[in-house]
Design a binder for these strands. Sequence first.
DNA 1: GAGTGGTCTAGACCACCGG
DNA 2: CGGTGGTCTAGACCACTCT
Lengths: 247, 247
Amino acid sequence: MSVWIRGIHLNKYEEIANELRRRISEGEYAEGEILPDQMKLAKEFDVSRMTLKKAIDMIAMEGLIFKKRGVGTFVLKSSLWNNGDSKFDDYNGLTEQFGHRRIVSKKINFDIVFPDEKLQSLLMIGASNPVYHVQRLRIIDDKPYILEDSYFVASIITQLKAEHLDGSIYGYIRDELDLKIGGAYRKIHADVANGLDIKELNCDVHTPILEVEQVVYLDNGTPFEYSTSRNRFDTRSYTITDIIGNH
Amino acid sequence: MSVWIRGIHLNKYEEIANELRRRISEGEYAEGEILPDQMKLAKEFDVSRMTLKKAIDMIAMEGLIFKKRGVGTFVLKSSLWNNGDSKFDDYNGLTEQFGHRRIVSKKINFDIVFPDEKLQSLLMIGASNPVYHVQRLRIIDDKPYILEDSYFVASIITQLKAEHLDGSIYGYIRDELDLKIGGAYRKIHADVANGLDIKELNCDVHTPILEVEQVVYLDNGTPFEYSTSRNRFDTRSYTITDIIGNH
DNA sequence: GAGTGGTCTAGACCACCGG
DNA sequence: CGGTGGTCTAGACCACTCT
């Protein structure tokens, strides 16, 4: 009752969601058009209506379609908002996001320290539980891009070494440590440039900075990273799709 | 098979979610503790397991609990991230968000214009379809807070009048026009202060600005508003909770 | 009234984790 | 192995919108 494609297991509702996404992106269901109703689609895919609805719900959450009780389900225009901006539900590091471009990391700082009170609280650890402190400048296509200041709980992200900093730390966490990421709390603000920004991001005292502050959790709920990522205001923005469910 | 409380209809899964939230917030299920399994909870609330799971899924999406297949469901610590910041899933205007404080709006501009190409595309309207152009400074507790620059599709938000600008435009949309909001696309960036910012937000040329750009949709998928909201960097930030589902 | 999506059931089987 | 959460079913009834 499920399918493997290229070694990846897909549930029925994921399969159906993929097929519906394809039909929408290829214009088989045009913008503004109404989709076949859930009964018809359930019959077509030979699944129960509950399962089909789950697929529909996923796509609706992504903002591709829109449901209205008593009326039907419509295709929304993906419009101008589907650009290259960072999405909030993206848990890959920069390395994966910009895989097609040349990414280099410049190590600014790498040591292991004891957490201050703020870190202890955010990472739910004690004062004697050391954390790796990593500061990197990520460079994309020869241009300075993001200034990262990260703290990793040493007892979780074990054996972090200088050579990992050159590439993707998240790749190390996922592939070598075999840990899974469960989610993150993020906070965005604007800020004034500080000394390090000025030095590394090629800006001056008056350049606005966009900062994303985050605590990242493993899939068992344990926080393992606190970090801030700083960009020049003109190099990055964030997009969010927000769809109210039901009612 | 459902309940009305204070005139509001609640589905079973919403009822159960509320009760579980209460137990968590009052410490009946303490932080880090495991919840009774889904079968037990389903029996307790006398619902099917599917319904109970739906309640659990809602709370998990909010970041209150964490599920792990083969293990169980745990309470997460809500921690320091539950502060007064704006949430992305908040569709109320400022007036509702800060209802307990004194909000005043200063009208800067109010007229009706024809949309340029960017607006035509974002709002899915033609060049001859007029839009209201509203610029307001929102003042909270006597301090300038947000500079709003909004365009409303005139054929949808009909009869918008100057007096509506003093209060909540969203209140007008919801209560008088009886329209329902379906969702929004939002984009956040930092920016340099422009002339209007300097004049109205009490800042200077070098003050970083946090800007939120958004297109808001009705519950039938029709876009009706494009707006930008600008704040001084030190007066507002945004938080997002991101939980990866399943797997 | 006809047709849509939303909720809910009672049960089945599966995938995963721990001991 | 037993117990967890995840998926899926085949149907029922409800809430809503439109004609």
